[in-house]
């Protein structure tokens, strides 16, 4: 198998994979609407809207963040 053939198979396989992943992602986003932590995706817009350092994070990194 020469390099051009490998190139073609590689191209095809990865494109199929990435297409499936993308459509899987779209399906996940619009069917579940929430991520695994239970946050609605649309809540994440608040990261920009409430971005003062004293605002509460949408999804805090840990509960003991405020020392």
């Amino acid at each position: 198998m020469d390099i051009a053939q490998l190139q073609a198979y590689g191209y095809f396989a990865l494109t199929v994979f990435l297409t499936l992943a993308l459509y899987g992602y779209i399906y996940h986003l619009y069917s579940k609407k929430k991520d695994s932590d239970g946050h609605d995706y649309e809540e994440y817009s608040n990261m920009a809207l409430h971005d003062d350092i004293s605002d509460t994070p949408v999804n805090a990194i840990s509960d003991d963040k405020e020392k």
Binding site: V58, A60, I61
Partner: peptide
């Protein structure tokens, strides 16, 4: 060192 776990789209 972020406090916000998820990364904003920007």
């Amino acid at each position: 060192m972020r406090r916000e776990k998820s990364l904003y789209i920007s």
